[in-house]
Amino acid sequence: MRIVVWVTEGTWQACVDTARDLPATAVTLVHVIDPDTIEAIGGARAGLLGRGLTGDAGTLAALTDGQTRLLDAAEDRLGRTARRDPRHGRPEREVVAACAGADLVILARDGDRSRLGPRSIGPHTRFVVDHAPCQVLLVWPDTPPDPATLPPPHR
């Protein structure tokens, strides 16, 4: 079984732990740098008219360093060799693209973890769940909420 693990800040540990317990023939760790993060800094600099500011001020380098550290930590935690797939682009689309040829993608819920429900899945995660060209394993990043948090049925 070829497994893709979406490594993203805050939830990667649960995904890697899940992958470790599965009979994988190959594991790919994918992490995506979102250009919007770079633009958040670039845009603010561009807004300072007249200051002679240029470039992205090392933003991409800082993000790439963070990406490398995160993939290192994920591979360490996995305890076996994995293929690393560092990407740059819209996260939801890059992850779907990284799933090509895989049997399973493992990703985690992000958002409201206090109750069961659709708000426990952020927009990017939802896009991947909806569009992944393989089986999807959606894990809670920590202890799942109590079943009592289930909303009452519509009348």
Partner: peptide, 9 residues
């Protein structure tokens, strides 16, 4: 909300 809702390591 989604980006901020991830657990602390």
């Amino acid at each position: 909300a989604a980006d901020l809702g991830t657990p602390a390591p």
